[in-house]
């Protein structure tokens, strides 16, 4: 094969790869474009900070949904992150009899449809306590725990064994080696997994439908029903009112920006590696 045909082949491949890139970008960009165009008009300080108004009345905002989303995600993270990291340390560092079982369960759980997580918490908790932000957070945790556990486990597994041996051989107890040497070495990967987990649950709607329920007012505590951005988008977008539909676009835009920022955050954290 001479140089010319090789060059032509090379160029043809570059064109193919570029084409694939464009095809992937079309849906993403058109979605971003559409949501930005329709949503950005709704954004104002009032929109971000005030309560919804009844349909037909002008103004109003999604402040309580933003508050609710932050609370749900923060509570779910507070529940999930410690459990996930501890489970990952157990599977990776203390390969006991339980560890392969936990690994399997985590893999299965990570494929759970999100609506199932919602129904599960609904059946388990709602009859006793009623709808609440806490129940919503628990449903989100069911989705977040496997994601963060798997990401943490992969990061721990990627820590070279000679790092563990170096610490053990210095006379450092196993638990300290796991916590202060291995876990510390895996922190960047775990941080990435945590942010991805947060990005995932902040957009979930289905688990919140029968748990957090929704609320037209400010949330006053974990045991009250709460609004959340995905819930509000769902309710507003399916409503017959124009003003609500317009606000659903605005809320979708906010949600998209949050998830995008989280993903960019992952990139920045991961680049430090």
């Amino acid at each position: 094969m001479n140089l010319r045909t090789r060059k032509m082949k090379g160029n043809a491949m570059i064109i193919l790869v570029a084409l694939a890139f464009v095809i992937i970008m079309i849906p993403l960009m058109s979605m971003l474009y559409m949501i930005a165009i329709r949503g950005i008009g709704a954004i104002s300080l009032e929109f971000l900070t005030s309560l919804p108004t009844p349909p037909g009345e002008p103004g109003g905002g999604v402040g309580n949904a933003i508050q609710g989303s932050l609370m749900l995600v923060a509570t779910a993270s507070a529940i999930s992150i410690p459990i996930s990291i501890m489970a990952a340390v157990y599977i990776s560092e203390y390969r006991g009899k339980l560890s392969s079982a936990i690994e399997l369960i985590t893999d299965v759980l990570s494929g759970t449809p999100s609506i199932v997580a919602g129904v599960f918490i609904y059946v388990l908790i709602i009859p006793r306590t009623g709808f609440s932000a806490l129940a919503g957070s628990l449903a989100l945790s069911v989705l977040m725990i496997p994601t963060v556990t798997i990401a943490s486990y992969e990061s721990l597994k990627a820590v070279p064994n000679h790092i563990r041996e170096a610490a053990i051989a210095l006379g450092v107890p196993k638990w300290k080696t796991s916590l202060f040497v291995v876990l510390r070495s895996a922190m960047i990967g775990i941080g990435t997994g945590v942010i991805l987990g947060i990005a995932r649950i902040s957009g979930e709607t289905a688990p919140l439908l029968f748990t957090a329920l929704g609320n037209m007012y400010w949330n006053e505590g974990l045991l009250q029903p709460t609004s959340a951005l995905p819930l509000l988008i769902y309710n507003y977008a399916t409503s017959p009112y124009r003003s609500w539909q317009a606000q659903a676009w605005g809320a979708a835009f906010i949600l998209l920006v949050i998830v995008l920022l989280l993903n960019i955050g992952v990139r920045i954290v991961a680049r430090k590696r």
């Binding site: 070279p160 000679h162 790092i163 041996e165 170096a166 610490a167 053990i168 051989a169 210095l170 006379g171 450092v172 107890p173 040497v181 510390r184 070495s185 922190m187």
Partner: peptide
């Protein structure tokens, strides 16, 4: 074993300082 390892140190084949 933990106390034994503090009395008997070890240097490995490949240098393995803690990367963090």
């Amino acid at each position: 074993p933990v106390s034994i390892r503090s009395r008997i140190g070890m240097v490995f084949q490949r240098p393995n300082p803690f990367p963090t």
